[in-house]
Write a protein that binds this DNA or RNA. Structure first.
Length: 276
DNA sequence: ATGTCTGTTTCCTA
DNA sequence: GTAGGAAACAGACA
């Protein structure tokens, strides 16, 4: 599932836990804890509060903050401790990961790999295939190591930044769009969707795109991500290309869609709306 | 049963 | 620098 819009949905889920104290961490499958042992992982988080979650591309970062200096009722104090210097939780959802907010007594799901318990609810990292998972960054520099590998967030990249990053390489535009080091957040579905909306064939070389085409691509990308993020997934609507991966007819002109594997992923486009 | 597919990423080879 | 394949994993599906 997880492309930028999905992770944006998970970010909103994580907001339910913001400013709550982590009462306990259950690592039900140590394999998804990427950079520490299960005990250390839980120990790094227990007793701290989750702060406001951030998303960069497909990566979700949940910083922590210290518990409020004892109870300060009445004061809506966000307390003194900033999230600086505190450990962060980093989540990469791989291909099948998800984050769910559950009531305390909901029975566990077979694919619940890590459970973060709070008073009155819990956050669950659920993942069937365990291609990625969670990691702990003990200080901001450690989180930066992961995030610095990524290009600018696709939903936030400016037009100029977008064009500059994309044309830095001369690869096929679909491949460049899904390269997280070029631009962070687009996956197989959103890349196909954006290219279709912009009327650009996926195998075009980035360096042969005109300024107008780059601008169109950027504009479509922003609007597509905005709409999909609101839904928390790439919609399966009839007016979207992604809704036609099965019947393989262009939603705009009804032409038979073309299909090819590009860098290992199934790529779909309309030969009429996206000419060579 | 066996093979193929999958909304991800990384590593290797040509 | 770029493209393609395989692998990590756990299914669903024909």
């Amino acid at each position: 599932m997880p492309e930028l819009p999905d992770v944006e949905g998970f970010r909103r889920t994580a907001e339910k836990a913001a400013h709550r104290v982590v009462r306990g961490v259950d690592v039900r499958d140590a394999q998804v804890v990427l950079n520490s042992g299960p005990a250390d992982f839980g120990e790094a988080l227990r007793g701290r509060r989750f702060a406001e979650p951030h998303r960069h591309g497909k990566v979700l970062q949940i910083p922590t903050e210290n518990p409020p200096a004892d109870s300060s009722p009445g004061g809506s104090s966000v307390d003194g401790s900033s999230a600086d210097g505190m450990p962060s939780l980093l989540v990469h959802f791989g291909m099948t990961g998800a984050l769910l907010w559950c009531e305390p007594n909901e029975p566990p799901h077979a694919h619940d790999r890590v459970v973060f318990r709070f008073d009155g609810g819990e956050l669950r990292y659920r993942d069937m295939r365990k291609l990625k998972g969670v990691r702990i960054a003990r200080e901001p520099a450690e989180a930066a190591e992961v995030l610095d590998e990524l290009g600018p967030d696709a939903a936030a990249a400016s037009r100029a930044e977008f064009a500059a990053r994309l044309t830095r390489t001369r690869r096929q535009v679909k491949t460049a769009l899904t390269d997280q080091a070029v631009l962070a957040g687009l996956g197989n579905l959103t890349a196909d969707e954006v290219l279709w909306r912009a009327g650009i064939a996926p195998h075009r070389q980035t360096t042969e795109l005109t300024r107008d085409e780059l601008d169109a691509l950027h504009r479509r990308m922003r609007s597509t991500l905005r709409e999909a993020s609101r839904a928390g997934l790439v919609p399966n609507r009839p007016s979207w290309l992604s809704g036609h991966r099965a019947d393989k007819r262009c939603p705009r002109c009804s032409e038979r869609l073309s299909q090819r594997r590009m860098s290992g992923r199934t790529t779909i486009w309309c030969p009429v709306c996206q000419p060579d």
